[in-house]
Design a protein around this nucleic acid. Structure first.
Lengths: 159, 159
DNA sequence: CGTAATACCTGTAGTTACTAGAGGTTCAAG
DNA sequence: CTTGAACCTCTAGTAACTACAGGTATTACG
């Protein structure tokens, strides 16, 4: 991560996993999970084997959380962290990653918009009679009745 | 499912799982999976234990596929199928299901639009220097620099 | 100081909707 | 009759966590 200040030396404050989680908006389980998959470094432990964190961990986890909120995959976040850890490098790779992600988001947006329009059309044309005459069921039964929605492959994320 | 015609009696044509899959746009594995979770009834088998299907299966599977393309969850599809199987029932429940789904789609759309806008802003403001000055990294590091994107809970689907 | 309520630990299994593979059988064409 | 494609079952893997179970540590209160 990009460090603003050179660690406040002497009386550094340590926090537990619960407080870290609260500060950064995730759950303790998720923090442990991120440590397990190597997104967060293994935290030092106290006498009783409990993880102790500094404010650096809060920053790193907030970064992760935020990137995830933007819909970056965990693997993309891993790359972003790697880059953020090297402030002197040119930011072209960061840019590329962001642009690729933007393209994916735009593709999803287009698909989702088509789905919304068709759902609206379907619902508007339902006369409210019996299932036998229901336009919604008709559209789902017969692709020809549907204007825009196309098949898609795997599951997409975020919305 | 809603049956248009009363089964063509005598020489019914039977097809294998591969052809069924091609006709309805999924893979044989998916067909077996749907049978396993009870979305499709267990298909009758021939002498050599291979599944044989009629055109009714093509219709049902196409319905499923299409509803999934619209982003309905498998459980929602199960309910839609149940309703489609009873053409005499009032279609209010269908309507409710569709409307609820529309609302979800609209929520995702709103979120995704915010993400897109913020990504664009981020990318536009990147001056192309080093990571240390990169606006993209800044925004991800500090939520205050970001206008609209809010944390979200679990994974959402479709896009 | 004792004890009870939290907070924390590890490890495993569950979630969604499939997909991929291993290892074997059956079918259709030549 | 032999090959190759299609089919069978069963298991495990995917993403990104979440939810236990069963046990230990810490903290607050009286």
């Amino acid at each position: 991560m990009k460090e603003q200040k050179p660690a406040p030396s002497t009386t550094e404050r340590y926090i537990g996993i619960g407080e870290l989680a609260r500060e950064s908006g995730c759950k303790p389980e998720t923090v442990r999970y991120y440590e397990q998959i190597g997104l967060l470094p293994s935290a030092p432990r106290n006498e009783g084997n409990q993880r102790r964190y500094t404010t650096a961990a809060i920053r790193r986890l907030t970064f992760i959380r935020h990137a995830r909120d933007f819909g970056f995959s965990v693997e993309a976040v891993r790359e972003l962290l790697e880059m953020a850890d090297h402030p002197a490098m040119p930011c072209q790779e960061v840019d590329t990653l962001a642009k690729r992600h933007l393209a994916e988001v735009e593709a999803r947006l287009a698909r989702l918009t088509a789905v919304r329009d068709e759902l609206q059309r379907m619902i508007n044309q339902c006369a409210g009679g019996s299932v036998g005459q229901c336009h919604i069921i008709d559209v789902l039964s017969d692709h020809r009745l549907c204007l825009q929605v196309e098949p898609h492959g795997g599951a997409d994320v975020i919305g």
